[in-house]
Amino acid sequence: MFEARLQQGALLKKVVEAIKDLIEDANFDCNNSGFSLQAMDSSHVSLVALSLRADGFEHYRCDRNVSMGMKLANLSKILKCAGNDDAITMKSEDNGDTITFMFESQNQERLSEFDLKLMDIDSEHLGIPEAEYDATVKLPSSEFQRIVKDLASIGDTVEISVTKDAVKFGTNGDIGSANVMCRQNKSVDKPEESTEIDITEPVALTFALRYLNSFAKATPLSSHVVLKLSKDLPIVVEYHIENVGRLSFFLAPKVEE
């Protein structure tokens, strides 16, 4: 059987809220090392990879590898019934056709159980190579969210360019153009506001803002977002979930035709 208890159930709620508009359905894969998901959006332009480590749960048991297919909209409906301070336990029997979500209030006075029917989902698993990136930028997640939202009111795509001192986001549209630059700032007194840049090679790539705005829905998961860029490769937009794992998004760059 599979059983996993997350004291901070809100994390699971935030993860599902962050991906439910991007991917329709997905297989949640559980094994000894943890709980994971990999899925492409319906247009196959971006990829979501979630990884929650077994040791990030207060209790974790997985007797055999299971893959549980779920429609994200339905999972979201159920998780919206959990309180923000509730602990969430997920349970499923081997070869079972449902997954049970148990919500426990902090004072343990309220206990609720919701069963979600599992589905067979045919999904393609992609091999994500372990790559060294030309540039890695760590910036406040709220800042990234604001930039991609602001730029989307001007244009459809953003050019992200990274040099050793700064990261620049630029767009053009019918009404004009916009540029936002964030300088490296390893602020020690306010670490939550720091912007850190690590580059081996300056890099500039163009991406669809629509997808970056969708990824930014993961902002509540983490104070910072990590952007990884290499010439002609998909950008990685990574949210680290403290002590539990990470949610990563991959987006193919726009190419000149």
Binding site: E124, L126, P129, P234, L251, A252, E256
Partner: peptide
């Protein structure tokens, strides 16, 4: 114009 490639073009199927 600019085109958009599939993510699968970068990461092969496993």
């Amino acid at each position: 114009g600019s085109g958009q490639r599939s993510i699968a073009a970068f990461f092969g199927s496993k």
